[in-house]
């Protein structure tokens, strides 16, 4: 957690949000792939972000 990996985590969140808002075209997807291919740290951060995305998608909204 943290420990200098924060910039990578923030970048992973950028990609996650772009992907899930449907903002990536083919070129964008290739850029994401290049980013993932660049480092195992990037892949790990993105994998964590996607796992959190799936988990949070199961939590019902508060008091409704």
């Amino acid at each position: 957690m943290g420990n200098g990996s924060d910039a990578v985590w923030q970048a992973a969140l950028d990609w996650l949000m772009l992907m899930h808002e449907g903002e990536l075209d083919d070129a964008g997807h290739r850029e994401l792939h290049a980013w993932l291919a660049a480092s195992p740290t990037h892949r790990e951060a993105f994998r964590e972000a996607e796992r959190l995305w799936t988990l949070t998608g199961l939590v019902p909204p508060k008091d409704k």
Binding site: M1, W9, Q10, L13, L16, M17, E48, A49, R51, L52, W53, L55, T56
Partner: peptide, 14 residues
């Protein structure tokens, strides 16, 4: 949104 996901991450991997 970043805060929410980062906080979840901190709790999940702690």
């Amino acid at each position: 949104i970043r805060d929410a996901l980062s906080h979840c991450r901190g709790c999940l991997f702690a």
